[in-house]
């Protein structure tokens, strides 16, 4: 029987790497196909951030004083994009929780596929989804008065940083989704840690308007650092814009730290899904 012999051939490292990549792409493609097939998902991932842009630009914006060149819309856009990247992780956590619960992950783990593929494929698909959302938000931002003021490369740098940030948060979400394994619980838990973290930051309002004790937290938490670095990239070195240095380096150190902790935790949770 041909299949019996197949088990005895141990594939070499190059073959394993090729399979690992191909497996991750198969899962990425599958996740994106699912996303495309359910109109509600698309509407939700794209329309919700657009509503946020319009809400903050026109409802709250008038009441929020900032010294940023270009006014509140310049201040707002990097904040909204950072928040959107962070909130993309809800879908990540929920999808993995549902897959773990429904036995889909069990089935995938029984296949001779790379162990890394389910998580990598999830992160890649969510990265693509996130990028589409960010581009839509930027288009809306341009329509309501936002402009990059620092050239093309830093603008691309800002989008890349937002992606890196979003994917890092998705990694945390992978861990949470696989451990909690319940759609509603995951959703509720996401709100508990993500809402305070994104709103008690420089994303929507200047930190100076917060009480002292809150400022201490807001100034030093990673979302503020990421969003300040994004603003610096979008607006350049002008009065009223935050400095690139040290925001960018501190942001990168934070993201690396989060990845080093939660990457292995997510992998471990994946191995133990039951």
């Amino acid at each position: 029987m041909a299949t019996l012999a197949a088990a005895d051939v141990t594939p070499d490292a190059a073959q394993l790497l090729r399979w690992a990549l191909s497996d991750a792409f198969v899962i990425t493609r599958r996740n994106l196909l699912v996303w495309l097939r359910v109109p509600a998902y698309i509407v939700f991932t794209i329309v919700q951030p657009v509503i946020f842009v319009l809400l903050f630009r026109y409802v709250f914006g008038g009441a929020i004083r900032v010294a940023t060149p270009g006014g509140y819309v310049s201040y707002l856009m990097p904040g909204i994009i950072g928040q959107t990247a962070a909130f993309a992780c809800f879908a990540t956590a929920i999808a993995l929780a549902v897959e773990a619960q429904a036995g889909v992950i069990d089935r995938l783990r029984s296949l001779p596929m790379a162990r890394s593929a389910v998580l990598l494929g999830r992160l890649m698909a969510d990265g693509v989804r996130m990028l589409i959302t960010i581009l839509v938000i930027l288009a809306v931002g341009y329509a309501v008065g936002f402009r990059f003021q620092n050239g093309v490369l830093p603008a691309i740098g800002m989008v890349v940083l937002a992606e890196a940030f979003g994917v890092t948060i998705c990694c945390v979400a992978c861990f949470i989704g696989l451990v909690i394994k319940d759609q509603e619980a995951v959703q509720a838990f996401g709100l508990i840690w993500l809402f305070p973290l994104t709103f008690v930051s420089s994303a929507f309002v200047p930190i100076q308007s917060m009480p002292d004790w809150m400022q201490a937290f807001a100034n030093n938490q990673p979302i503020t650092l990421v969003i300040n670095a994004m603003r610096a990239l979008a607006l350049g070195n002008q009065p009223g814009a935050p400095p690139l240095n040290p925001n960018l380096w501190e942001a990168i150190v934070w993201l690396a730290g989060i990845l080093i902790v939660f990457g292995p935790l997510a992998v471990r949770a994946y191995r133990r899904v039951s």
Binding site: T3, L4, A6, A7, A102, G103, V104, D106, R107, L108, S110, L111, P112
Partner: peptide, 12 residues
């Protein structure tokens, strides 16, 4: 894993 096939109690 290269030898087996699995159809679980819940469809996947």
């Amino acid at each position: 894993r290269r030898l087996i096939g699995l159809a679980g109690q819940a469809t996947a």
